[in-house]
């Protein structure tokens, strides 16, 4: 044993030496490094989870926006349709009104025209009667009872009317 250098004292000495090194390295190297590795692992895991969460949130938001956009589009379409329908209705109404108005104006014009014609005809008749009396008086050169004359003339005119 002596030749090999094995010595219980040095053996114990080296064992204590080594265990001291184990203790020191555990304190100074392994524990801090392993804790740091764990911490980093945890941090990366958290980051990944957060990223996944953010992504799913973004996806939800996107769907929400798309839904809203679709709603808005439908709304706009409906407004345009309503407006178009209202405009069409309005146009029809105004066209009908205008037609009615035109009809009315036309009818009134015709009415007035008829009245005017009748009036003119009546006046013409009177005028003709007076003229006829005058002409007849001149022709027979005879003064007649004006009352009688007028009656005569009126008969003449009505005869004229009937004959015409």
């Amino acid at each position: 044993m002596g030749e090999l250098g094995i010595n219980p004292f040095y053996l114990a000495f080296q064992i204590i030496n080594f265990l001291l090194l184990v203790f020191l390295l555990h304190r100074l190297l392994y524990r801090p490094v392993l804790n740091m590795l764990d911490q980093r692992k945890e941090r990366i895991r958290e980051g990944q989870e957060a990223a996944e969460r953010a992504q799913s949130e973004a996806e939800e938001l996107r769907q929400e926006y798309e839904r809203q956009l679709e709603e808005s589009r439908a709304h706009a379409r409906k407004i345009i349709e309503d407006a178009t329908a209202a405009a069409a209705r309005l146009r029809e109404e105004s066209v009908a009104n205008a037609q009615q108005e035109a009809q009315r104006i036309l009818e009134r014009g015709q009415e007035e025209l008829r009245a005017e014609v009748q009036h003119a005809r009546r006046e013409l008749r009177q005028e003709v009667a007076t003229l006829s009396v005058a002409v007849a008086g001149k022709l027979i050169q005879e003064s007649l009872d004006s009352e009688k004359n007028r009656e005569l003339a009126a008969r003449l005119v009505s005869d004229l009317d009937d004959s015409s």
Partner: peptide, 10 residues
Amino acid sequence: DLNMTIGMAL
């Protein structure tokens, strides 16, 4: 040194 290696082996 055998003391060292035997120590660690123990």
